[in-house]
Amino acid sequence: MRRALPAIAALTYAFLHLPLAVLMVFSFNESRFTVWEGFSLHWYRELFADARMMEATWNSLFIAATATAAATVMGTACAYGLWKRGAPILSGTLYLSLVTPEIVTGVSMLAFYQFLFRYMDLRLGLHTVILAHIAFSIAFVVVVVKARLKTVDASLEEAAMDLGATHWGAFWRVTLPALGPGIAAAALLAFTISFDDYVITSLVAGVDSETLPMVIYAMARRGVNPTVNAISALIVAGLGVFILIAERLQEA
């Protein structure tokens, strides 16, 4: 067992990391086929020249940034509200949103939007995507910020209020600063989840709101394309840095 365990672990780590590593290496391949023909930035050049891909990237960045900002503020406030006393229905709903299969969340939002549109002159577009993204990322923010709140001493707020601070003042100047790293980590995770979402987004997006995952999906459906390798490598590198920072912050 002494020797078997590290061997199994090494193989499992290889299984977890090699596919992405290989994908990234081959994004620098001169050839369009899986034969190495030399280092080249060819596919990256092609990627940046692709207008559809670039527009989708901007859409994704805009959606993720907006949804992250809103979900972080709302989720942090929510975690704080749940700190000293629970709210079973709200907690239950957030928990339910975490375990609901994405496809179910997606079709129910689609049905809901279409139902509303019968009475309102609106259409699917960036706004419907952003609202959906806020809704499915709030629970993640609440979980991360709540974990951070467990390390905060509640009596500090009471002390501040004894010294004359209002409840809001105590929150704003005592508890919130202590939550800083947790909130930042939550925001990074929310951004990652939003930027990557395909299933829900594809259902509630309109004609003018194609996101990067939607383009990648469409290209992948048509077969492997080296430009997809290039954009994948950039996404993995970009989100990877985000995640490393988020994990550092959560430990701090």
Binding site: V22, D196, I235
Partner: peptide, 24 residues
């Protein structure tokens, strides 16, 4: 955790890249 948090779509695509007929 690291690969887990990086794009699910990209990770699925990586397997298409590895497993297709002309894949690695």
């Amino acid at each position: 955790m690291l690969p887990f948090w990086t794009s699910f779509l990209v990770r699925t695509y990586a397997w298409m890249f590895l497993l297709r007929d002309t894949g690695l």
